[in-house]
Design a protein around this nucleic acid. Sequence first.
DNA 1: TTGCTCCTCACGTCACGTGAGGTGGC
DNA 2: TTGCTCCTCACGTCACGTGAGGTGGC
Lengths: 158, 158
Amino acid sequence: MGSVPKQPADLRIGEVARRLGVSTRTLRYYEELGLVAPSDRSPGGSRRYAEVDVERIVHIRELQQVLGFDLDQIGQMLEAEDRLDVLRTEYRNGPSAKRQAAILQECVDLNQRLQALVGRKMGQLEGMLAELKAKARRYEEVAAEKGLDVHHTAVPSR
Amino acid sequence: MGSVPKQPADLRIGEVARRLGVSTRTLRYYEELGLVAPSDRSPGGSRRYAEVDVERIVHIRELQQVLGFDLDQIGQMLEAEDRLDVLRTEYRNGPSAKRQAAILQECVDLNQRLQALVGRKMGQLEGMLAELKAKARRYEEVAAEKGLDVHHTAVPSR
DNA sequence: TTGCTCCTCACGTCACGTGAGGTGGC
DNA sequence: TTGCTCCTCACGTCACGTGAGGTGGC
């Protein structure tokens, strides 16, 4: 009762790496830094990842690649989120209400900072897109002026 | 006649670094790699940047930080764009029409790849924003459930 | 002249890449 | 048993950070 159904931890490191487009070295490095460890190990010592582990790695990658945080900052974010997860499930013997509020506040603040950052990044991308389209128009002009014709491959909308 | 009005190159490296939020080391490193050199030097040997140089650095930073290219790839992109700039201004003794078309085609292709990449990145950011908002709602729930109240600072829209 | 900024090495660091040499598991 | 994948060092690399020691310019 109250126990979460355990996911099987049967994914090997190479499989996870391929799925996420990262190297096995990267996954071992994240583990070395304490960011994600596989949920299990085989008797022989090789890593066995569960889906939750994979999701955590995806999360790390998003924070790193899309938002540009370094691994130290990401570690701190994960810690805050982990503390909240503990808080959410731990009803008896939990921390004091004051401590709970502090943890929750930390997560809310983090969430708001991230939302603001994502908003700024989107603005930057919109600016770049506008620039690129302006350049594309200028390329057309040069082509017309020189009497050259260039081949336009369809630009995929996503 | 036909000469572009020369911009003054009077910005010192520290000033440029402060304006762009990079280190002077970064600017010297980009120069070492051949990505941007200051338009001029003082008699004593210290770097003097012009506005065009600053714009080029901004461009490099966007490609690197927003789109995630490494400096080698960025160097290749800048080369393609530089060749087009030469093509655009060089009317006599210019390359053959065939060569011109090839250069222009290269730039058009690059532009289209970049537009596609920006589109994908924007999609990723939208996904992250949706996730963050979902999380924020769950934080609200936990707060309500635990009878805690958290402080919401206004999230700046940009 | 004083103080700040600039200069060039050059070693350190972060986030991995890339083998070396050996053991594990369907 | 064979082949592929995994393991742990450990050195290399990219994009800078960070002084060391010295010269430049309003």
